[in-house]
């Protein structure tokens, strides 16, 4: 088998293939980052919503809990299929990349919302009460007191989650999104050895994921020991 690799290598390591893999890498990253950024924003909204106490928001709070608990219990692959078959009949022009990104949003909203909620809860209650009796609006309390203290608890697991999702987006290959995993299949279908094709793809994932996971580990130790946590 090594003969085959050595024989194929010059044909494989070409500028064209490099650009092809880089493009796929970009789409993997795009799905993850766009999906998780939106997921973070909406998740923050849900986490804040769950902390409200107004009676008229009760149905919304229950809906938020239901959403979070539901989507954390469905495989990403199943969510991908549901989103695909939901969106396609309604809006046939949607690109596969966009559809997969919507699925990432749905999942990451649920998971990140839980992470954010734990972070918000780590801030002592008296901090909010101190702000309240100084006549801070709830929004001011959130922006000036709670979030600045909570982000240190939120960030490490949030980064870890994003790292996990870089890998999970490989399932989007199933829809036909030309991200890294699909790119690997294409390379192998073109006749390259699976060892080379999937080997290169594994390396590409590693290049994306490893620095991010190091960053997460670094944040965890840095923020864990820094002052005013």
């Amino acid at each position: 088998m090594f003969e085959r690799i050595i024989e194929e290598a010059p044909r494989f390591f070409t500028y064209y293939n490099l650009m092809f893999v880089l493009g796929a890498m970009w789409r993997t990253l795009l799905m993850t980052l766009v999906g998780c950024s939106i997921g973070f924003t909406v998740g923050l909204g849900l986490a804040v919503l769950r902390r409200t106490s107004a009676a008229w928001l009760r149905p919304a709070r229950y809906a938020a809990i239901l959403y979070v608990e539901t989507f954390r219990r469905i495989p990403f692959l199943v969510v991908l299929f549901i989103v695909l078959y939901f969106i396609q009949p309604i809006y046939s022009g949607a690109s596969l990349l966009a559809i997969a990104t919507v699925a990432v949003c749905l999942m990451s909203t649920a998971f990140l919302s839980e992470i954010i909620r734990a972070g918000l809860e780590s801030v002592p209650r008296q901090q909010m009460e101190s702000a309240e009796v100084l006549n801070f609006h709830p929004g001011q309390t959130l922006a000036w007191v709670i979030l600045p203290q909570a982000w240190k608890v939120i960030l490490p697991p949030a980064v870890a989650f994003v790292v996990m999702f870089v890998k999970d987006t490989s399932l989007a290959s199933q829809l036909g999104v030309v991200e890294l995993t699909y790119a690997g299949k294409i390379l192998v279908n073109k006749g390259f050895s699976p060892l080379l094709g999937f080997g290169a793809i594994l390396a590409a994932y590693f290049i994306l994921s490893y620095p991010l996971s190091r960053l997460g580990a670094h944040l965890e130790t840095r923020l864990g020991t820094s002052r005013n946590t």
């Binding site: 088998m1 890998k167 890294l180 594994l202």
Partner: peptide, 23 residues
């Protein structure tokens, strides 16, 4: 650990499924 936790399980299995027959 670093290799397996930083690459997708799906591609690892693809690798096993398609590349091992080479050997």
């Amino acid at each position: 650990v670093v290799f397996f936790t930083n690459t997708p399980a799906l591609v690892q299995i693809f690798f096993l499924f398609y590349a091992l027959p080479e050997a």
